[in-house]
Each structure stands twice: as structure tokens, then as C-alpha cells.
Amino acid sequence: MSTRLVSSRLLCAALLVALAPFAAAQQSPVAAGQERDAAQGKEYREYEVKAAYLLQFLRYVTWPKRADDDKAPLVIGVVGKSPFGKVFDSVDGKEVEGTGRKLKVKKFDVAPKDAELRACHIVFVCKSEQPHLEELLAAVADHPVLTVTEGDRMIERGVAFGFVLEERKVRIEYNSEATQRAKLKVSAQLQRVVVRRL
């Protein structure tokens, strides 16, 4: 009899302990901010937002001058099984304002030759290629290529920018050493939206 009774008490205690942080969080300013977002009613697909970030990177990151700068398109290379679907279709091949240059999105199902990677301005490494992230980074090491991927703690593995999801929002983590090695300049405005920096 007593064992069953204690079990019920244990269950109730665990429930109370479990609910406490939820209740505390509900009263936090962050939670209040979420309510405002909800009131705005704007919600996008995850990879639409990530694609938009990649295009913003083209504007807020400065690459060293290349001989072909005036004519060559700005190239985003997507390496691996692309989760973007047709998100880029409406902007691919069209001009990026303020640069006078067109956007070119290249999809590589598997890691291409090093020269093709180095020809990209941004390389986005999809989840399917993350097991080989170090090899991809080695291929573009010391070249002016902005490396981006997604998932927790990816900047520790050497990429310049990592997308993470927090509270259903796409956040950016930033590895400044990686951009310094690649001789890329990241604007202060972009650095301000970074949630974690290495």
C-alpha cells in the first residue's frame, strides 16, 4: 500500500518540479517578445529565411578584389542534398542591388573539385555533407570563401557562420577567426545580429 502511495507522491513532485521552469519562462521578457511576434502573424519556412540570410551575407561581407569582379556573378555554392528546394529560383541569375552583379546559385550534390569550391563566394554545407565538413573546409582554407552551415556548435568545427534554431527563429553563430583567415570583412551591422561568437 505504502509503495503505491509513495509512487504517486513522487509522480506529483516530479510534475511540479518539471512545470516550475516552464512557469518561470512564461513570465520572462523573451516570452513577451514571442507574443509580439505571434501578433504580427509573420511566419516563413525555415529555408526561406536561411536563403535570405545567405543573400544578406553577400551584401554585408566584403571580399578581396578579384580580377573578374566587375563582371563575374556572386556565387553561392550549395554542397550536399539541398534543403532549399525552389527557394532561390526567383532570385537566381538576377542582379544583387548595390553590387551591379548577378547572383548565381550552384548546387553540388556531393563535394566538387576544390577549384569549383574556391570559385564560390559563399559555400553552404548541407547536413548530408557535414560528416566531411573538415575536408570541405580544408579545400577552401586560406581562400576568400565564406563558409556557412547549420546545426549546433558548427562554428567550433571551423565554419564562419552557423545557422541555429532557437525558439523557432533562425539565429547566426559567427567564427571571426574563420573570416579573418579567409580575408573577409564582416560589417558591424551583420555582427550585431550574431547570437554567439567564437
Binding site: 511576434d37 509573420k42 516563413y44 519556412r45 536563403a51 535570405a52 543573400l55 533562425v170 539565429r171
Partner: peptide, 23 residues
Amino acid sequence: TAQGGDVFSLSLEDLAEVKVSVA
């Protein structure tokens, strides 16, 4: 987008705050 908005018109600050529907 599902809401008819244009995600490419959002600012960096807006992108950081917009909610996404996880697949």
C-alpha cells in the same frame, strides 16, 4: 511564402526575429 510575404525583403534584424515553421 505561405503568408504571401517576401522573405528576401526582410532586413537582417527582421530575419533574426521572424519565426519559422520547422519542416
